[in-house]
Protein backbone atom coordinates (compact mmCIF):
# COMPACT_ATOMS: atom_id res chain seq x y z
CA UNK A 1 0.00 0.00 0.00
CA UNK A 2 2.48 2.59 1.09
CA UNK A 3 5.71 2.72 -0.76
CA UNK A 4 8.02 3.16 2.13
CA UNK A 5 11.45 4.30 1.26
CA UNK A 6 13.86 1.98 2.96
CA UNK A 7 16.60 4.37 3.82
CA UNK A 8 18.99 4.36 6.65
CA UNK A 9 18.68 7.69 8.41
CA UNK A 10 21.67 8.38 10.56
CA UNK A 11 21.28 11.03 13.20
CA UNK A 12 24.28 12.87 11.80
CA UNK A 13 22.78 13.04 8.34
CA UNK A 14 19.46 14.26 9.75
CA UNK A 15 21.05 17.06 11.76
CA UNK A 16 23.19 18.10 8.82
CA UNK A 17 20.04 18.28 6.73
CA UNK A 18 18.12 20.40 9.19
CA UNK A 19 20.88 22.79 10.15
CA UNK A 20 22.64 23.21 6.85
CA UNK A 21 21.86 21.38 3.64
CA UNK A 22 18.09 21.70 3.88
CA UNK A 23 17.82 24.46 6.43
CA UNK A 24 14.10 25.33 6.49
CA UNK A 25 14.69 29.03 5.88
CA UNK A 26 17.91 29.30 3.89
CA UNK A 27 17.58 25.99 2.04
CA UNK A 28 13.93 25.11 1.64
CA UNK A 29 12.62 28.68 1.85
CA UNK A 30 9.81 27.61 4.15
CA UNK A 31 8.19 29.58 6.93
CA UNK A 32 9.21 32.92 5.43
CA UNK A 33 6.22 34.85 6.73
CA UNK A 34 6.96 34.33 10.39
CA UNK A 35 10.70 34.60 9.77
CA UNK A 36 10.24 38.10 8.39
CA UNK A 37 7.67 39.26 10.91
CA UNK A 38 9.13 38.05 14.18
CA UNK A 39 12.84 38.56 13.58
CA UNK A 40 12.92 42.17 14.77
CA UNK A 41 14.62 41.22 18.03
CA UNK A 42 16.80 38.28 19.04
CA UNK A 43 14.61 37.26 21.98
CA UNK A 44 11.52 37.15 19.74
CA UNK A 45 13.31 35.22 17.03
CA UNK A 46 14.75 32.72 19.49
CA UNK A 47 11.45 32.14 21.28
CA UNK A 48 9.64 31.73 17.99
CA UNK A 49 12.29 29.20 16.98
CA UNK A 50 11.81 27.23 20.19
CA UNK A 51 8.02 27.25 19.79
CA UNK A 52 8.32 25.98 16.22
CA UNK A 53 10.81 23.31 17.33
CA UNK A 54 8.45 22.14 20.06
CA UNK A 55 5.46 21.94 17.73
CA UNK A 56 7.47 20.40 14.91
CA UNK A 57 8.97 17.68 17.10
CA UNK A 58 5.65 16.69 18.66
CA UNK A 59 3.71 16.83 15.42
CA UNK A 60 6.38 14.77 13.62
CA UNK A 61 6.33 12.23 16.45
CA UNK A 62 2.57 11.80 16.47
CA UNK A 63 2.13 11.91 12.71
CA UNK A 64 4.75 9.21 12.39
CA UNK A 65 3.10 7.12 15.11
CA UNK A 66 -0.25 7.47 13.38
CA UNK A 67 1.05 7.07 9.85
CA UNK A 68 -0.91 3.84 9.29
CA UNK A 69 -3.98 5.01 11.17
CA UNK A 70 -4.36 8.23 9.14
CA UNK A 71 -5.60 7.21 5.71
CA UNK A 72 -4.25 9.16 2.74
CA UNK A 73 -7.60 10.81 1.89
CA UNK A 74 -7.89 12.52 5.25
CA UNK A 75 -4.23 13.15 5.92
CA UNK A 76 -4.10 16.92 5.44
CA UNK A 77 -7.11 17.48 7.68
CA UNK A 78 -5.67 15.18 10.33
CA UNK A 79 -2.24 16.86 10.18
CA UNK A 80 -3.76 20.31 10.57
CA UNK A 81 -5.79 19.18 13.58
CA UNK A 82 -2.73 17.65 15.25
CA UNK A 83 -0.51 20.68 14.52
CA UNK A 84 -3.21 23.13 15.60
CA UNK A 85 -3.61 21.20 18.83
CA UNK A 86 0.04 21.52 19.77
CA UNK A 87 0.19 25.16 18.69
CA UNK A 88 -2.75 25.98 20.94
CA UNK A 89 -0.98 24.23 23.81
CA UNK A 90 2.09 26.44 23.22
CA UNK A 91 -0.08 29.54 22.93
CA UNK A 92 -1.90 28.86 26.21
CA UNK A 93 1.31 28.03 28.07
CA UNK A 94 3.03 31.21 26.86
CA UNK A 95 0.01 33.34 27.77
CA UNK A 96 -0.12 31.81 31.23
CA UNK A 97 3.54 31.73 32.17
CA UNK A 98 5.43 34.09 29.79
CA UNK A 99 2.97 36.93 29.21
CA UNK A 100 5.54 39.43 27.93
CA UNK A 101 6.75 37.01 25.26
CA UNK A 102 3.17 36.16 24.35
CA UNK A 103 2.47 39.87 23.96
CA UNK A 104 5.43 40.53 21.69
CA UNK A 105 4.95 37.46 19.51
CA UNK A 106 1.23 38.06 19.41
CA UNK A 107 -0.58 36.67 16.42
CA UNK A 108 2.44 34.76 15.16
CA UNK A 109 2.08 31.94 17.67
CA UNK A 110 -1.38 30.85 16.45
CA UNK A 111 -0.05 31.27 12.92
CA UNK A 112 2.52 28.51 13.50
CA UNK A 113 -0.39 26.22 12.54
CA UNK A 114 0.02 27.25 8.94
CA UNK A 115 3.79 27.55 9.07
CA UNK A 116 4.71 25.55 6.03
CA UNK A 117 7.85 24.07 7.66
CA UNK A 118 5.63 21.93 9.85
CA UNK A 119 3.23 20.69 7.17
CA UNK A 120 6.12 20.12 4.80
CA UNK A 121 7.95 17.89 7.28
CA UNK A 122 4.74 16.04 8.13
CA UNK A 123 3.94 15.40 4.51
CA UNK A 124 7.40 14.70 3.13
CA UNK A 125 9.02 12.98 6.09
CA UNK A 126 7.03 11.99 9.17
CA UNK A 127 4.18 10.40 7.25
CA UNK A 128 6.56 7.98 5.53
CA UNK A 129 9.30 7.29 8.06
CA UNK A 130 9.51 5.38 11.33
CA UNK A 131 9.15 7.15 14.66
CA UNK A 132 12.78 7.65 15.66
CA UNK A 133 14.02 9.38 12.50
CA UNK A 134 10.85 11.48 12.39
CA UNK A 135 11.46 12.68 15.92
CA UNK A 136 15.07 13.53 15.08
CA UNK A 137 13.97 15.22 11.88
CA UNK A 138 11.58 17.39 13.88
CA UNK A 139 14.31 18.39 16.33
CA UNK A 140 16.92 19.09 13.66
CA UNK A 141 14.60 21.03 11.36
CA UNK A 142 13.34 22.99 14.36
CA UNK A 143 16.89 23.79 15.42
CA UNK A 144 17.74 24.77 11.86
CA UNK A 145 14.81 27.15 11.88
CA UNK A 146 15.85 28.52 15.27
CA UNK A 147 19.45 29.09 14.19
CA UNK A 148 18.29 30.87 11.04
CA UNK A 149 15.90 33.03 13.10
CA UNK A 150 18.65 33.96 15.54
CA UNK A 151 21.01 34.91 12.70
CA UNK A 152 18.40 37.06 10.94
CA UNK A 153 17.20 38.73 14.11
CA UNK A 154 20.76 39.38 15.34
CA UNK A 155 21.54 41.34 12.19
CA UNK A 156 18.24 43.21 12.32
CA UNK A 157 18.40 44.05 16.02
CA UNK A 158 22.06 45.01 15.99
CA UNK A 159 21.82 47.32 12.98
CA UNK A 160 18.20 48.37 13.45
CA UNK A 161 18.20 49.24 17.13
CA UNK A 162 21.87 49.03 18.08
CA UNK A 163 21.21 46.38 20.71
CA UNK A 164 21.45 42.65 21.24
CA UNK A 165 18.88 40.74 23.31
CA UNK A 166 17.46 44.08 24.41
CA UNK A 167 20.81 45.33 25.77
CA UNK A 168 22.20 48.36 24.04
CA UNK A 169 25.72 47.58 22.94
CA UNK A 170 26.45 50.07 20.22
CA UNK A 171 27.22 53.50 21.63
CA UNK A 172 25.54 56.82 20.99
CA UNK A 173 27.65 57.40 17.90
CA UNK A 174 25.57 54.76 16.16
CA UNK A 175 22.27 55.90 14.76
CA UNK A 176 20.10 52.81 14.28
CA UNK A 177 18.91 52.08 10.76
CA UNK A 178 15.19 51.98 11.46
CA UNK A 179 14.69 50.51 8.00
CA UNK A 180 16.00 47.14 9.11
CA UNK A 181 13.33 46.78 11.79
CA UNK A 182 10.59 47.47 9.25
CA UNK A 183 9.27 44.67 7.00
CA UNK A 184 11.31 46.00 4.06
CA UNK A 185 14.47 45.58 6.09
CA UNK A 186 13.42 42.03 6.88
CA UNK A 187 13.34 41.17 3.19
CA UNK A 188 16.70 42.84 2.58
CA UNK A 189 18.43 41.02 5.44
CA UNK A 190 16.86 37.69 4.53
CA UNK A 191 17.86 38.06 0.89
CA UNK A 192 21.39 39.06 1.80
CA UNK A 193 21.86 36.18 4.21
CA UNK A 194 20.37 33.71 1.77
CA UNK A 195 22.82 34.83 -0.89
CA UNK A 196 25.64 34.40 1.62
CA UNK A 197 24.56 30.88 2.56
CA UNK A 198 24.24 29.83 -1.10
CA UNK A 199 27.66 31.26 -1.84
CA UNK A 200 29.20 29.26 1.01
CA UNK A 201 27.42 26.10 -0.10
CA UNK A 202 28.56 26.49 -3.69
CA UNK A 203 32.10 27.16 -2.63
CA UNK A 204 32.10 23.97 -0.61
CA UNK A 205 30.61 21.98 -3.45
CA UNK A 206 33.33 23.14 -5.82
CA UNK A 207 35.98 22.01 -3.40
CA UNK A 208 34.48 18.52 -3.22
Amino acid sequence: MSRRQKKDWSARQLFRNGLLDQNPIFGQLLGMCSALAVSTSVINGFTMGLCVTFVLTLSNLFISLLRRFILPQIRIAAYIVIVAGFVTVVDLLLKAYFPSLAASLGLFIPLIVVNCVILARAESFASKQPVAPSLLDGVSMGLGYTVAMVVISSVRELLGSGSFCGIRILGDWFSPAMLLISPVGGFLVLGGLMAGVSWLKNKRKKKE
Binding site: L66, F69, V81, G85, T88, V89
Partner: peptide, 16 residues
Protein backbone atom coordinates in the same frame (compact mmCIF):
# COMPACT_ATOMS: atom_id res chain seq x y z
CA UNK B 1 -10.65 7.97 12.02
CA UNK B 2 -10.71 11.72 11.50
CA UNK B 3 -13.21 12.00 14.36
CA UNK B 4 -10.87 10.00 16.58
CA UNK B 5 -7.95 12.33 15.81
CA UNK B 6 -10.11 15.39 16.50
CA UNK B 7 -11.50 13.89 19.70
CA UNK B 8 -8.08 13.11 21.15
CA UNK B 9 -6.76 16.57 20.24
CA UNK B 10 -9.80 18.22 21.81
CA UNK B 11 -9.29 16.22 24.97
CA UNK B 12 -5.66 17.34 25.17
CA UNK B 13 -6.65 20.97 24.72
CA UNK B 14 -9.38 20.70 27.33
CA UNK B 15 -6.81 19.49 29.85
CA UNK B 16 -4.29 22.23 29.03
Amino acid sequence: RLTAVVAVTTLLLAVV
